[in-house]
C-alpha cells in the first residue's frame, strides 16, 4: 500500500481512459470484426459466383477489406503503443502486467474466485482488474503482435520479393514457420484465440457492468469510471 493520498477512495468518478485510447478501442474492435469475418472467408470462400470472371471481384473485395482493416489494426496498434508511453498510467496497464508483484497475483486469484462464485464481492479497480490485465496482455497484446507479424508475412508474399513487407516480414517469418502454409494455419488459428477473447471480454464487460462495483461500458465510451460504492479501491492507482 502506498500513500493514502494517491487513493481515490471516495470520488464518485475518475477519468481513466483518455480520448485517443477510447478511439483506438473502438476502431480496433471494428477492425478486428472486419478482419475476422474477411479472414474467415479467405480461408473458406463463399459459394461460386456465376458468369464471367471480369464481372466479379468478390474474393478481391474480401481480401481488400482484410488488408485495409489490417492496416488500420496495425497502425492503430502502433498508435496504441505510442499512447502507452505518453498517455496516463492506465494506458500502460495492459502492456506491463506487474507479474513480479505478489499483490497482483493475489488480485488475479481473487478475481478468479469471484468468477467461480467463490468470492462474495469483486474488488474495486480504477483501471482493469488484474485478471483482465493478464488476459488482455496475453491474448490481445501478444495476439495482436502475432497477427501483425504473420499477417504482414503473408501480405509480403503477395507484394513480392522486393517489397518492404517481404523484406521486413516474409523473408524471415516464412522460413521460421517452415513454409507459407504453416503461417496461414497459425494466422488462422490465432484468429480464434482473438475471437475467444472477444467473446469472453464482451460477456465480462456486460456482466461486470451490472454486477461489479464500477462502471465499465460507459467508461470505454466517456472515459470516466463511475463507482457504485464509496469504499476504497483495491488497486494502486
Amino acid at each position: 500500500m502506498t500513500t493514502m493520498a494517491t487513493k481515490p477512495h471516495s470520488e464518485p468518478s475518475v477519468y481513466v481512459y483518455e480520448a485517443p485510447l477510447r478511439l483506438w478501442h473502438w476502431m480496433n474492435a471494428l477492425a478486428i470484426v472486419v478482419l475476422c469475418i474477411s479472414g474467415y472467408f479467405i480461408g473458406s470462400p463463399l459459394p461460386t459466383m456465376p458468369g464471367e470472371a471480369s464481372d466479379h471481384y468478390l474474393m478481391g473485395y474480401i481480401r481488400f477489406a482484410h488488408f485495409a482493416a489490417a492496416y488500420i489494426f496495425a497502425i492503430g496498434f502502433l498508435g496504441r503503443i505510442y499512447w502507452a508511453i505518453v498517455g496516463n498510467e492506465h494506458a500502460r496497464q495492459i502492456f506491463l502486467p506487474p507479474i513480479l508483484s505478489s499483490e497482483f497475483w493475489d488480485g488475479v486469484l481473487h478475481e478468479a474466485k469471484w468468477y467461480l462464485f467463490l468470492a462474495k464481492e469483486p474488488r474495486k479497480y480504477t483501471g482493469h482488474n488484474p485478471m483482465a490485465v493478464i488476459f488482455m496482455h496475453l491474448m490481445m497484446v501478444w495476439g495482436t503482435v502475432f497477427m501483425i507479424l504473420t499477417g504482414f508475412a503473408l501480405y509480403g508474399e503477395g507484394t513480392g520479393y522486393d517489397s518492404w513487407q517481404y523484406t521486413m516480414f516474409s523473408s524471415w517469418i516464412i522460413p521460421l514457420f517452415g513454409q507459407s502454409q504453416d503461417v496461414h494455419t497459425f494466422h488462422h488459428l490465432v484468429m480464434w484465440v482473438i475471437i475467444v477473447f472477444a467473446i469472453m471480454h464482451i460477456y465480462v464487460a456486460i456482466r461486470e457492468d451490472i454486477m461489479s462495483r464500477q462502471s465499465l461500458i460507459s467508461t470505454m465510451i466517456s472515459g470516466w469510471r463511475m463507482f457504485k460504492d464509496g469504499r476504497d479501491v483495491d488497486d494502486l492507482h
Partner: peptide
C-alpha cells in the same frame, strides 16, 4: 482438426 475446427470448438466451449 484444422484451425476452424479447433477455433469453433473452443468458441463453443467458451459460449
Amino acid at each position: 482438426s484444422n484451425a476452424d475446427d479447433v477455433g469453433i470448438g473452443a468458441a463453443a466451449v467458451i459460449g
